[in-house]
């Protein structure tokens, strides 16, 4: 009896609280920039694909919903030949973003992932890759990595000395 009265009282008090419900979709809720929603692939500051197809996101994914295949371009960059995320499996945990060494894969505040057909939840690279840098405006993996790409030879990466003169036998 006492508990009934208490509960009713609590509900009554709520009448005087501010309304949490918004008139979605007319009124959009506020989403923090680091909200974990739909996943994108970003580009580096030079406008090139950031993903180097290292497969770390795929192996970190607890539901195994990322699959990709490495290939490389003429200039020596590694990039994914295909990159697929099955959003009908994805639990938006953000593990892939944590694992990504290049900031390529990022979760966005877009949570509106609803389709009538499940196959439409399967996103290929063309659906994932955006034209911007996302949350990390400055980072470019290829400027740090030692591997050569066109326009960046040995010694040109961050903190590198020019290539060693191996013929020298001086002490």
């Amino acid at each position: 009896m006492w508990s009934h009265i208490k509960t009713t009282w609590l509900v009554f008090l709520h009448l005087f609280k501010r309304n949490e419900t918004v008139q979605y979709p007319e009124e959009m809720p506020y989403m923090a920039p680091r909200y974990r929603g739909r996943i994108i692939l970003t580009r580096d500051p030079d406008g090139e694909e950031r993903c180097v197809s290292c497969n770390l996101c795929a192996v970190a994914c607890p539901v195994d919903c990322i699959a990709l295949q490495k290939t490389s371009s003429e200039d020596g960059r590694w990039y994914p030949e295909f990159f697929r995320i099955n959003f009908s499996r994805c639990i938006l945990c953000g593990m892939c973003e944590e694992a990504c060494p290049t900031y390529a894969i990022q979760l966005t505040p877009d949570f509106e992932l609803a389709e009538y057909e499940r196959p439409n939840m399967v996103y290929e690279k063309e659906h994932l890759l955006i034209d911007g840098v996302g949350k990390y405006p400055d980072y470019s993996f290829w400027r740090v990595a030692g591997k050569t790409i066109a326009g960046k030879g040995k010694g040109d990466a961050r903190n590198e000395l020019p290539p060693t003169e191996v013929h020298s036998l001086l002490p």
Binding site: C61, D64, C65, N86, R89, V122, E124
Partner: peptide, 15 residues
């Protein structure tokens, strides 16, 4: 035991 992509590798054919 770390095989990845099980739920995506064939998803382009069938989900």
């Amino acid at each position: 035991h770390r095989f990845s992509g099980r739920t995506a590798m064939n998803a382009n054919v069938s989900v």
